[in-house]
Computed example of a mutant assay.
Amino acid sequence: MNTNDVRSLGWRFWIITVAALVTMAVTASLGRWQLSRAVQKEALQLAMDQRMAEPPLSAEQFVSQLNALPASSLADAQNDPLLHRQVQLSGQWVAEKTVYLDNRQMNGKQGFFVMTPLRLSGPAGAVVMVQRGWAPRDFTDRTKLPTLRTPAGEVQILGRVAARPARLYEFDTSGNVARDSVIRQNLDLVTFGAETGLPLLPLSVVQTTGNADDGLLRDWPAVDSGVDKHYGYAFQWFGLCALVAILYVWFQLIRRFLRPRSQPSA
Rank of each mutant, 00 (worst) to 15 (best):
P199K: 11
S181G: 02
V206W: 12
S204T: 11
V205K: 10
Q207P: 09
L216Q: 13
R179A: 03
L189R: 09
N176L: 02
N211K: 12
W220P: 12
G197Q: 06
R179T: 00
P202Q: 11
T191H: 13
T209K: 15
L216C: 10
P202G: 05
R218I: 05
P202R: 11
G197L: 03
R184E: 05
N186W: 00
W220H: 12
Q207C: 11
L201E: 13
T208W: 06
A212E: 13
R218T: 09
V177H: 08
A194F: 02
E195Y: 06
V190S: 14
S204L: 10
Q185K: 14
V206Q: 15
A178I: 02
D188M: 01
L217S: 09
V177K: 12
L203Y: 07
A178F: 00
L201C: 08
N186Q: 03
Q207H: 10
D188R: 04
L201D: 11
N211P: 09
G193Q: 02
V190Y: 09
T208C: 06
D180Q: 10
D219T: 09
V205S: 06
Q185F: 07
G210Y: 14
L187K: 02
A212M: 05
N176E: 03
S174D: 12
V190R: 14
T209Q: 15
R218W: 11
G197T: 00
W220T: 08
W220I: 07
A178M: 03
Q207E: 15
L200I: 00
R218F: 09
L217Y: 08
V206K: 11
L187W: 00
L201T: 04
A194S: 10
A212V: 03
D180R: 05
A194M: 06
V190K: 15
D219L: 12
L187V: 00
N211M: 13
A212I: 01
L187S: 01
Q185V: 06
A178C: 02
